[in-house]
Write a protein that binds this DNA or RNA. Structure first.
Lengths: 338, 338
DNA sequence: ACCCCGAAGTTTTACGTATAACGCCTCTTG
DNA sequence: CAAGAGGCGTTATACGTAAAACTTCGGGGT
């Protein structure tokens, strides 16, 4: 109570309870069985509550050499998907007494050269999306435990990976459309260098190529509704047999496709079918509601964080892919008779 | 180099450069003018680079008594709007050498009783959305500097506030619709206890009530597309003069209204006009594109963080409201002749 | 010849916590 | 009754950094 303004320390609590600082640390750290009497422990807890004591995290971190804080590296937070990943990851982390700090990679924040200067907290580990690839070399510089989200298991710098089974999702979409009778496809592809999108493209093309009599053209576009609209419009007015189905790498691209089709006077799904991938809120806001593949972003974040905690504690993380689910809505139907 | 595995400290650098630890601290802290010779400083920097030295943040924080880290409290991160707020806030923070830790308030993460236990980093200040009101009492418990985002300036616990000029946005919407000739309104209101929504409702009702011959009914709904659809459908089929315009508290509610109107067979904007508020990506994905009010979430985050930094450094933060802009798109038109 | 001054460092200390190492007192046990 | 053995604490120390206080040394002014 001598200095009124500054926060109470464990020594202040000790003084108030009439014990030593060490005793306070033992009691509050729950390591006092057989070292401090029940009544003294009670007295210490009371004093701590009275003074509103909160341990100084910086001091604790320094003493223990770890921070119980991990970094989540994402390409951008302005997306529903990665917001969901954060939510799931933070939930699991909190349950284990860990905190999560975000590092949105690209032009978002801070110097791209040194992602960790901006993370003021010292870190115990890193969970990184493969879409934020530019930060990876810096990450390997520090020898921090690392888990990659949705990355090529082979080439991922030797780190553990947690993947959504995107390939299966793409196959399910292809089978759904092939089953409806579609043979001519436009693939509206995300123009983003990332393993996830490579996987989508690969699964899609092999599945479609395996069916005789099919055609597939590809239009790359940045993930932006209006740029996707433009790309789709160009691709659909190109010469050759017009596709009867547009497969989009992502729900946002699908929203662009919707706009292109409206401008071309084509009705969904009567004249042409459209599919997305993600199942964002956007998918059910579109008219007609979008057939897509549901990626459970929160589960993804949870599993990723669980894997990182496993690595931190020397266990081998669960390597199973996370299943995804086809959600059939109103944007797909059999192709109209030619 | 004695112990190969652990991270180098400033003492290791000192050893390598043949100086004292204090000299290293001075050089790397850029406080060496007139205390260390240029050549020695050079040698120290070289050694630091060679060893890959990174200062231990925990130790620095302990020494300095501050962390250059602030907490951002948001109601949920799974929304484009708050993701934007974070992005803006983090950008400004990073430019001043600060980091940002997130605390998504509601069911998201951690114990609601003690928001700060989950934030492992010690904090210098807090930036909090008024929509995360339940966390506020705990915040006042700590005597941390606090800036509120979009909160009643009068009742905000004496903290500084940064507000979007939502009232002006609501007025602009009302004037736009009144100018088109609309007289009968449905207000699809967000059923969320928050000052921002109170402001929208108040500005709207006073503006409309000031015009003779108008009617206004209100339907409250949670911010969810399908619940909004249900609420809108009920309100629109109620007896009385049917509204010619639906004013929604939020773009997501507007998406719900679109669905309700489609099911009722009403065309937008021919039979009925619709407005939103936020200008999310959703607004231009809807058909027809939504007339709404643009809230610049990133700017909001930037200004909020700037205000918090001002408070931290003893300056008086800029109190001016952030202007918002009416964006007229295709969802509003004059009412059809009765 | 003396003192003072500035340059160029070094030594020392403090931040708040966790825990290893050490006392002391009482009770049991051979 | 000597010798542990717990029970109940305390004292001392280390974590890595920043910075205040001190040292040393070679001029310059008077």
């Amino acid at each position: 109570m001598a200095r009124g303004s500054t926060r109470p320390t464990s020594r202040d609590v000790a003084l108030a309870a009439g014990v030593s600082q060490a005793a306070v640390s033992l009691v509050l750290g729950d390591k006092w069985r057989g070292r401090v009497s029940e009544t003294t422990a009670q007295r210490v807890r009371e004093a701590a509550r009275e003074l509103g004591y909160r341990p100084n995290l910086a001091a604790r971190n320094l003493r223990l050499g770890r921070t119980r804080t991990v970094l989540l590296v994402v390409p951008a937070l302005t997306t529903e998907f990665f917001a969901g990943v954060y939510t799931g990851a933070a939930r699991v982390a909190a349950a284990h007494g860990f905190g999560v700090v975000l590092y949105p990679s690209p032009e978002g924040v801070g110097p791209a050269r040194d992602p960790f200067a901006s993370a003021q907290a010292a870190l115990d580990g890193v969970l990184a999306s493969s879409m934020a690839a530019d930060a990876l070399t810096a990450i390997r510089g520090d020898q921090l435990p690392l888990v990659m989200l949705d990355s090529d298991p082979a080439g991922s710098l030797g780190a553990a990976t947690v993947n959504l089974d995107i390939a299966d999702g793409a196959r399910q979409l292809a089978d759904h459309l092939l089953g409806l009778g579609h043979r001519h496809f436009l693939h509206l592809a995300a123009d983003v260098p990332s393993w996830t999108f490579d996987v989508r493209a690969h699964a899609l093309t092999t599945r479609i190529a395996a069916t005789p009599g099919t055609t597939l053209r590809t239009a790359p576009a940045p993930i932006s509704i209006d740029e996707a609209r433009a790309a789709a419009e160009t691709a659909l007015t190109a010469p050759g047999p017009r596709p009867t189905a547009v497969v989009c790498d992502d729900d946002k691209l699908a929203a662009g496709a919707y706009k292109a089709l409206r401008r071309l006077g084509l009705r969904i799904p009567d004249d042409i079918s459209v599919t997305g991938l993600d199942d964002l809120a956007l998918a059910t806001a579109l008219d007609p509601e979008l057939t897509t593949v549901r990626l459970d972003a929160e589960l993804f974040g949870e599993r990723g964080m669980q894997a990182l905690l496993d690595v931190l504690e020397g266990r081998t993380p669960d390597a199973a892919d996370i299943p995804v689910h086809l959600v059939v809505r109103a944007s797909t139907a059999p192709p109209s008779a030619p």
